[in-house]
Simulated scan of single mutants.
Amino acid sequence: MTTAGRAPQTLGLAVVLLTVMVGTTMPTALYTHYEREFGFSVLTVTVVYAVYAVGVIAALVAFGTWSDVLGRRPVLGLGLAFAAVSDAVFLLADDTAVLLIARVISGLSAGVFVGTASVATIEMAQGRWSARAPLLASLATIGGLGTGPVLAAVLVTLAPHPLRTTYAVHLILVVVAALIVAVVPETRPRRPGPLRPLSPAVPETVRDFFVRAAILGFAGFAVMGLFTALAPTIAAQVAGVESVLGQSGLVVTVMGGSLVGQLLGRRLSERGADAGAVGAMLAGMVLLVAALLTGWWPVLAAAGLTGGAGQGIAFARGLAGIATGAPPDLKASTTSAYFVVTYVAISVPVVAEGMLTRAVGVTTAGIVFAAVVAALVAVAGALALRAHRRVAA
């Protein structure tokens, strides 16, 4: 197939990745409705969010190596099947227990999908698209995460039955995505071998880079997790933002910042990208503290944009370096290992934040969170600086 012929398939896989990720964040715009329907507390919101990440991690560990053996398309089909089942369970959810099941299945869809789809997008690209494919995959991932709350907020505002219509729309999108997967060519032929769980081992060729990328990625995704899970609560209780669209807009600031960071990070050297990621995330945490103390929503939005920009730089550089540096037969498993780190970051700190919020309130808990993330970012920055000095010497 020619380079020009590969372009539509590359874009198609990116669209499929975006579609699956949209479904994982749509519930964010519905949390206030669930609070009224099911009597949610802040801690419940964080638990509902975290069980999604548990599903992601479980799928990454169980299925993270499968596409290196079966090929990419069968595993993409499995991920889409999980996404469709998740939408169906959401449509039937009438209490918190069923909602938790739906979130776990949604996490399984993302866990099966995100590493394999990212690698498939990169492998599909040829010619001038090859250099752009890692960025395209990371933009699709973060773009989907950002689109989910906005699409759900619009449907909540304009469509009837918000707790049902949202998932019906996404189910239709999943069907379209399945049709795309059915027609794109395979990028990794099936090969003999057992279907083993993901091994924590990382190839020697990318190990040093992986460690640095994982630490910085952990900090960045912790920030993203905070905004995705708790920005509506912070907006309502601290900044006085009551509308669903306004709350979702504040959630999306971190995604928008991430998209900008990914685009900027592509033009930076490795050293410049590390410095930019560390500086932006530290500035974002300072702004988050200021927003919590002042209650000004524009400062909260600036915190999301700035912190998200740092996360985007770190994520794009990390994903590109790992996906392109790993050996061909270990690309999916190594990429999946990176996503395990990021989804632990999305879940564990957010649950801790929810528990702390219950004990000391939103403002104090948010300040503690910002301080911990800033310390982690500083450690990651010190490790990156030491690595760059070692290379220079």
Rank of each mutant, 00 (worst) to 15 (best):
A302W: 07
Q126P: 06
G366I: 04
R6C: 01
A110W: 05
L11C: 07
A83E: 13
T141M: 14
A4N: 14
I322E: 04
L198I: 07
S67P: 04
Y31R: 02
P162Y: 02
V286K: 05
L385S: 14
R164P: 02
G23D: 01
I313G: 04
F221V: 03
L136H: 00
L70G: 10
E35I: 03
I105K: 01
A320N: 11
H161M: 13
I122T: 15
V211C: 00
L293G: 06
T253G: 13
V202L: 01
A219P: 05
V112E: 09
R196Y: 09
T32M: 07
T32R: 11
H33Y: 09
Y52A: 03
P298M: 07
R188K: 15
G12C: 06
D94M: 12
R390C: 06
A214W: 00
S67I: 09
F369C: 03
V181R: 09
A97Q: 11
A152S: 12
R191F: 07
Q262K: 14
G265Y: 04
L92C: 11
G55R: 02
A117S: 15
T342V: 13
V119L: 11
R386C: 03
T253D: 12
V244Q: 10
G325F: 04
P189N: 08
D68T: 06
S106G: 13
G318W: 03
P200Y: 00
T157Y: 10
P149F: 06
T335F: 06
V150L: 15
G310N: 02
L60I: 06
F221A: 06
V181N: 10
R103I: 05
A273H: 05
L171P: 11
L100A: 07
Y167A: 03
T46Q: 08
T32H: 12
M124T: 15
R317W: 01
A277P: 02
A102D: 02
I172H: 10
G5W: 13
L287G: 01
L305S: 02
F227N: 09
T3K: 11
A301M: 10
I322Y: 03
V377T: 14
G77W: 11
A177R: 09
L136K: 01
P189T: 06
V45F: 03
L70M: 14
H33R: 11
M26K: 05
A7M: 14
G71R: 08
G225F: 00
A303D: 01
L250Y: 10
T334I: 01
L259Q: 11
P327G: 03
G256K: 13
Y343I: 08
V344H: 02
D68F: 04
A53T: 15
A7Q: 13
R196Q: 14
L383M: 14
G295C: 07
S347I: 02
A359M: 08
L282W: 04
A352K: 00
E186A: 09
T44K: 09
A177Y: 10
T24Y: 02
T306K: 00
V351P: 03
F227R: 10
Q9Y: 15
V75H: 07
I122C: 05
T324E: 13
L11N: 02
W297Y: 12
F82I: 08
L385E: 15
T166V: 12
L158R: 13
A4T: 13
V119N: 09
S258E: 12
V351T: 10
A214M: 02
G143R: 05
L99Y: 02
E37H: 08
G272L: 08
T165M: 11
G312I: 01
T233W: 12
T28I: 07
L288H: 05
I122Y: 07
T294Y: 03
